[in-house]
């Protein structure tokens, strides 16, 4: 199926956390993709299967992966506002079906077309600049899967650099895990708490008023800890800033 270079058909893999916890990130993603000329579709979907995969539940992960592969079969690209879920599809779906002659090729096909949002905008579509304004002093946490599985590092920074009014201070140890780790944070809550406390201290050290990242899991973890500490730092998904989609209060920040 040839890709319409001007208006590719992009399937939004919204991710279960965005779907359930923070629809604003989904709408921000749709807006960014449409602004970049994409035709966005949102097939009915549940979960990419990563929690099952990382828990060693291969059969459950395979069932969920097959549903995703089916749901996005007719898209030119698939984009997720998450490095973690995009990484699951890009790296682990092929691994999951590596000995499966029927689903293996399908998994590879989906993997090749799937991208994390900021990486898709910058690396695939060549977006240089988004039209957005944010009067704030932000810092950015690099979520692990996006960073190390997909090489997402410069893309969000490049896009943020074009946001009017925004000032970015780099987070010390930005590449160190926040302690979320999917089921890790409930299996080993105390260790996770120590890790996210260190992260909260690093955030405080920047003096930023806003913390951004590209993955809902990490954001909920960091926002949860910052709120518990009484920190005034607003926590948002990077897509919200890039799309100027600020209608929802910051994560865990109550209703305005």
């Amino acid at each position: 199926m040839p890709v319409d270079a001007k208006s590719p058909r992009v399937g939004l893999m919204v991710t279960c956390l965005v779907d359930l916890m923070r629809p604003a990130v989904g709408f921000a993603t749709v807006r960014l993709l449409e602004q970049a000329g994409c035709t966005v579709v949102v097939p009915e979907q549940t979960c990419c299967g990563q929690p099952a995969w990382n828990s060693g539940e291969r059969a459950a992960a395979a069932d969920l992966a097959k549903a995703m592969i089916r749901a996005f079969a007719d898209c030119d690209y698939v984009v997720a506002p998450s490095g973690s879920c995009a990484g699951m599809v890009r790296l682990h779906y092929p691994e999951l079906f590596k000995d499966d002659p029927e689903w293996g090729p399908k998994a590879h096909h989906l993997a090749r077309r799937t991208h994390e949002l900021t990486s898709f905008l910058v690396d695939v579509l060549g977006v240089e600049r988004v039209e957005a304004r944010y009067d704030g002093h932000v810092t950015y946490h690099d979520s692990c899967s996006g960073l190390r599985e997909l090489g997402v590092k410069e893309q969000p920074r490049r896009l943020l650099a074009g946001v009017e009014g925004l000032r970015l201070t780099e987070l010390p140890e930005a590449e160190v895990c926040c302690g979320f780790g999917g089921t890790f944070c409930v299996k080993y809550p105390e260790i996770s708490a120590k890790m996210v406390s260190d992260k909260a201290a690093a955030v405080a050290a920047t003096g930023a008023d806003t913390l951004l990242a590209g993955d809902m899991g990490c954001l909920m973890n960091m926002a949860g800890r910052l709120h518990r500490l009484g920190s005034p730092v607003a926590v948002r998904h990077v897509a919200e800033i890039l799309a100027g989609e600020l209608s929802a209060p910051p994560i865990g920040g109550g209703k305005s």
Partner: peptide, 24 residues
């Protein structure tokens, strides 16, 4: 049932409706 999480951090509440419902 989420004591592990809420032992050291608040749990951000969802905004109420799912993206898929709102989008449709």
């Amino acid at each position: 049932l989420a004591g592990g999480w809420t032992g050291a951090r608040d749990f951000p509440a969802p905004t109420g409706r799912t993206f898929q419902d709102l989008y449709r």
